[in-house]
């Protein structure tokens, strides 16, 4: 994590706390970052310095308007206008970490091939909390490369129960 991303995350957290909806902003920023990371076209457009910053901000507002909180839209617009859209994933991850740390939680980045239901997310958070010994805030990322199952990353710890991992083990054993 770069020093710059940490600074931006601190700014986002400060603004969100001032507005009183840090949990929502952190969660929405994480989702937006995942969406930008998952779309090459969008990522390249928002990172293109040939495009005026105002136009890139307008794109962000058009995409998020009405679907995210205003403060979240403003934070993303600010990051894009600053020309740091390529760092938005790291900023979002650090924001989530800071938010969880504020509440005494750890962030579990969970990758699955399909989206989890709320009930599955809740059960998974409970199971990971029991496995790690402290409260866990689950952030789900849909990643088809997982093929099936779940890969949970908590800090430096990885609990891999994915089909991809099992196939890799099978390949190694063969």
């Amino acid at each position: 994590m770069s020093e710059r991303s940490v600074s931006y995350a601190d700014a986002v957290v400060s603004v969100a706390k001032a507005e009183g909806n840090l949990d929502l902003v952190a969660d929405e920023l994480f989702r937006v970052a995942r969406a930008i990371e998952g779309s090459d076209e969008l990522r390249m457009t928002l990172s293109d310095r040939q495009i005026p910053a105002a136009l890139r901000q307008q794109i962000v507002e058009d995409l998020l308007g009405g679907q995210a909180a205003d403060i979240t839209t403003a934070m993303v617009s600010m990051i894009v206008a600053a020309g740091r859209s390529s760092d938005i994933a790291g900023i979002a991850r650090e924001t989530v970490e800071l938010n969880a740390r504020e509440r005494g939680y750890s962030v579990a980045e969970v990758r699955t091939a399909v989206a989890l239901s709320d009930e599955q997310t809740q059960r998974l958070a409970t199971a990971l909390s029991a496995a790690t010994g402290h409260q866990v805030d689950v952030k789900v990322i849909v990643d088809p490369s997982v093929m099936g199952g779940v890969v949970a990353t908590i800090g430096d710890e990885v609990i891999d129960g994915s089909v991809r991992h099992r196939l890799s083990q099978l390949r190694d054993s063969l």
Partner: peptide
């Protein structure tokens, strides 16, 4: 598969 994972993590098997 997801349920099996959740159950295994909860049981400390993973």
């Amino acid at each position: 598969l997801i349920d099996d994972y959740i159950n295994s993590v909860g049981a400390g098997q993973l």
